[in-house]
Design a binder for these strands. Structure first.
Lengths: 147, 147
DNA sequence: TTGCGTGCAAAGGTTTTGCAGCAAG
DNA sequence: CTTGCTGCAAAACCTTTGCACGCAA
């Protein structure tokens, strides 16, 4: 699949309807290099730590713009902080380890289909969904295991 | 099914390991009367509007205690405000209308089962899950319909 | 009585906003 | 040049916490 991330930063921004300013390039580049799910503050910190000049307000504004343009997805895994990940053209849901915080992405067509069916049965057109599983990994060497 | 809500307030609280104070009784009673999903602030406001004397801090503390005792469930449907609903012994997920905000509860055993299977296949034991569908209702008379 | 629970106010963390200056096209 | 974007600081918002007082058992 040919996704936006294959284009150079400037073109990727332009085709999303955004002018290619330096802060926007920086945020987009960071998200492309990362496979993690980053909070706004983590994005800000990493850029500052890398010697870049950017403000936290711009990070929030840019991430919101990226989300509206479909460039990134926003998730609210815990109740406090939102995290963002680059839209890579492959929809997926998330499984989070309650011990070590590891985030695993998965996709299940059966669940996807049932969701649509359920919405339809209830008289709705499915527009979006949020599915997060919380579990405990069975790795004996999980360094974050509690207890 | 015989649930906690069938008991008088005091007994319900006691069997949850909580002393039966007036604020706790008030919050529990409100949640029992309500079938809605209420935010902490909504709980606070409704009690104050009803002439009761209670502080917002107590509402937050009490709702957290209720959640730890399994008396209520906490949901984070949007990114900003948590909502609470009385645990009635029937697990369910939620479908929310993006037009009118209506919340519909549903349960689908197929999805429940697949979730467990997926977690197991990935080497995890499923502990919890959050599934929320977002859709648009097809009621022509939906007064909150946008556009 | 005795300690837990409460209310108030202040603090905490995340996100948004107002505004003057600056950069992109 | 001209408009839109940025950075800073302050505000907004939801939630938690410290503390002295008061109620439940």
């Amino acid at each position: 699949m040919n996704t936006e991330q294959d284009k150079p930063l400037t073109e990727c921004l332009k085709s999303a309807g955004l002018s290619a300013t330096q802060p926007r390039r920086l945020v987009l580049q960071l998200l492309q290099q990362q496979s993690d799910h980053l909070s706004a503050d983590e994005v800000y910190r990493r850029l500052v730590d890398a010697g870049e000049s950017i403000g936290i307000a711009s990070v929030y504004r840019i991430l919101a713009q990226f989300e509206n343009s479909g460039l990134v997805n926003r998730h609210q895994f815990d109740g406090t902080t939102a995290v963002y990940e680059l839209e890579r053209g492959h929809h997926h849901d998330h499984l989070i380890c309650q011990d070590c915080g590891e985030i695993i992405e998965f996709i299940d067509e059966e669940i996807e289909l049932r969701q649509k069916q359920i919405a339809n049965e209830l008289g709705f057109t499915l527009a979006d969904h949020a599915l997060t599983l919380f579990g405990r990994c069975q790795r004996s060497n999980c360094e974050n295991r509690k207890r």
